[in-house]
């Protein structure tokens, strides 16, 4: 059961958005987030929401998957909204006891909620349509210029993809260790939170030891297969832009210009 867990909640289906180059999707997400913070009026948000809706439609991912990602962040959003509602100075609207809701507060909280919602749905669209593998590839390729500043881009990307590969293996290992401990009378179910946390210690110690051993073995296996960092390495699956990727970039640029014009220049 544990081995079926996939990270990054990739949704397997066939669509234009899935086929786009991962770099395009990363850049698009970044541009979309920036546009959300540039926009300052209702028409800008409408435009952003419309753009997102079209992307979702094109991606063939059911909308409920997007909303699922929202649930975990709901609490944080409410928290931020309440604080903004009460603590923004300005013209008072209602006063309850010592707390005052101001006109500015309402506007600010509303903007905040819209921004956060769009931001989360927008970025989860990327993770839903891109495999973790492609994501690391895309990041490596986009961050490539940083190599000139001695940032170990290739190494970080390699570590990320190895981590992704080992998540299911370590999960399975945890499962095995837990079962072995339960078989010998360990109790992970009862007691309060602190007791439960304490009961986890005998799991973590062997898990860490095993992980270090695996890391050591893997490093040796990589060296045996001539791994020597990113220098002089070729790619089995190089990232090459297709026609659709250039079209996507053009659409993205148009979108950015439109939102800036509409969201900044037009009066409310």
């Amino acid at each position: 059961m544990l081995r079926d867990i996939t990270l990054g909640q990739y949704y397997q289906t066939e669509s234009v958005v899935h086929r786009l180059d991962c770099r395009v999707k990363l850049v698009a997400t970044l541009v979309f987030i920036i546009s959300l913070f540039v926009v300052d009026n209702i028409w800008g948000y409408v435009l952003a929401a419309g753009f997102l809706a079209v992307c979702i439609k094109l991606s063939n991912v059911p909308f409920k998957f997007m909303v699922r990602g929202m649930k975990s962040i709901l609490f944080l959003m409410l928290f931020a909204m309440v604080f903004n509602l009460f603590l923004t100075p300005g013209t008072p609207l209602i006063t309850i006891w010592k707390l005052t809701i101001t006109m500015e507060g309402v506007v600010f909280a509303a903007k905040m909620a819209i921004r956060l919602t769009l931001l989360i749905i927008g970025s989860s669209l990327m993770t839903l349509t891109t495999t973790p593998n492609h994501l690391t590839d895309g990041l490596e390729s986009l961050l490539n210029p940083l190599k000139k500043l001695k940032v170990p881009v290739h190494e970080v990307a390699m570590m990320m993809s190895i981590a992704l590969r080992f998540i299911p293996i370590l999960l399975e290992e945890t499962d095995k260790i837990m079962k072995a401990q339960i078989a010998r009378g360990a109790d992970f179910e009862s007691g309060n939170l602190i007791q439960k946390a304490k009961a986890m210690v005998p799991i973590f110690v062997p898990l860490f030891i095993a992980a270090f051993r695996r890391a050591n073995d893997l490093a040796m296996a990589m060296e045996a297969r001539c791994y020597r960092g990113g220098e002089g390495r070729t790619k089995m699956k190089p990232l090459i832009y297709q026609k659709r990727d250039y079209i996507a970039y053009t659409v993205l640029l148009l979108y950015l210009v439109c939102t800036v014009v509409v969201g900044r220049v037009l009066p409310i």
Partner: peptide, 19 residues
């Protein structure tokens, strides 16, 4: 388990030649 690097079989086989 400790010597397969790729997340897909073909990518792992390609690892050596890539290096």
């Amino acid at each position: 388990d400790n010597q397969i690097i790729g997340q897909v079989v073909e990518e792992d086989v390609g690892f050596g030649p890539e290096n």
